[in-house]
């Protein structure tokens, strides 16, 4: 063992760790970013606090379930039931379209599609792109495609004699379809994420038992991915419920005397009503209670849903990380 020879060069003097290395720049910058984070959360709290403090008091069963048939600007009598009904109708109808298509697409992308083919990349590109299209453009699309092209064509074939358009006008069904198109990426992304979180071993186990790919997807993979699909659906509903721009021309009505009776009727809408109350009110100070009340109802609907979705998603992601 030559290393133990006494001729080893002298040791460098020991350096101590206690020397003060307080880094003012690091400390300051870390504080600054923390402050930014805090500021964002504070603004969020401020908005929610303002809305719920001012609007929470006005919530009553009469407001929630009352009609607006006398005068929707009348603080004493106005209720938001027709709007709640309209919003619920359009988002429920929307999920019927968007969930099957979104889940199928996500299954294709994770289970079937060859990972690196240009074709798969085009689908992904389209999904990403769709997520970034401005909502007002969806409104234009709904008008140009669903109402004029699809609705107009239906009228020509189904009701050639009708003087009034039946399908070729703003309607519940077209608003829902427009929103379905808009929320498609939300469902696809959430579902894909949860599909990826499922361990490969589970699929292999199923295939090793002689199950076909379809059986594996339907019986093993999708049931496991249910929380993710649920999250996608909830996020889509929450996003759609708050959107106004896409339904401005495709179905929302300023005022209607009765609830929508069929798919081709227009509807009153909660989010649109917030816009109407904010901008068309004859006396904004007087109608403030119903305005705040309506906002609270809308927020309860969208925000509560969002919170649930975020919590489920955080859990899915944690599982994903544990697997990685």
């Amino acid at each position: 063992m030559t290393a133990s020879t006494p001729t080893a060069p002298p040791a460098p003097p020991a350096r101590r760790f206690r020397a003060s290395t307080f880094e003012p720049v690091s400390f300051f910058c870390t504080g600054l970013t923390g402050l930014a984070t805090f500021l964002i959360l504070a603004i969020l709290a401020l908005i929610l606090g303002n809305i719920f403090l001012q609007g929470g008091a006005g919530l009553s069963p009469r407001f929630m379930f009352g009609n607006a048939d006398k005068d929707m600007f009348d603080v004493a009598s106005a209720g938001v039931w027709p709007m709640v009904f309209g919003t619920a109708a359009r988002v429920i109808l929307m999920t019927l379209f968007v969930i099957p298509i979104g889940v199928t697409t996500a299954s294709y992308l994770t289970e079937y599609a060859p990972a690196l083919s240009p074709f798969t990349r085009i689908i992904r590109g389209a999904v990403n792109n769709l997520a970034g299209v401005p909502s007002i453009v969806f409104g234009l699309f709904g008008l140009g495609f669903f109402i004029s092209a699809v609705g107009g064509t239906l009228d020509v074939f189904l009701y050639p004699d009708s003087p009034k358009p039946v399908w070729g006008k703003a309607a519940l069904i077209w608003a829902s379809l427009t929103l379905a198109v808009m929320t498609l990426p939300v469902v696809i992304v959430a579902t894909e994420e949860s599909l990826r979180a499922i361990p490969l071993g589970l699929r292999e186990a199923s295939l090793a038992l002689g199950a076909t790919k379809l059986q594996t997807v339907l019986r093993v993979v999708l049931p496991q991915a249910l929380p993710g699909i649920l999250t996608g659906g909830i996020l889509a509903v929450s996003r759609a419920a708050g959107e106004v721009a896409p339904i401005l021309f495709t179905g929302a009505a300023y005022y209607m005397a009765s609830l929508p009776q069929s798919l081709t009727d227009q509807f009153m809408d909660l989010a649109y009503h917030v816009f109407v109350l904010s901008t068309q009110s004859p006396d904004i100070e007087k109608t403030r209670p119903i305005l705040y009340g309506t906002v609270v109802v809308l927020l309860l609907l969208t925000f509560a849903l969002n919170l649930v979705a975020i919590l489920i998603r955080a859990r899915v992601r944690r599982n994903l990380r544990r697997l990685a």
Partner: peptide, 20 residues
């Protein structure tokens, strides 16, 4: 202890430690 200093002592600077 490294060089006699308890490196988990409260007043040890981790950054300084890692430089050594």
């Amino acid at each position: 202890r490294i060089g006699g200093e308890d490196i988990y002592a409260r007043d040890i600077d981790v950054i300084e430690l890692r430089k050594r």
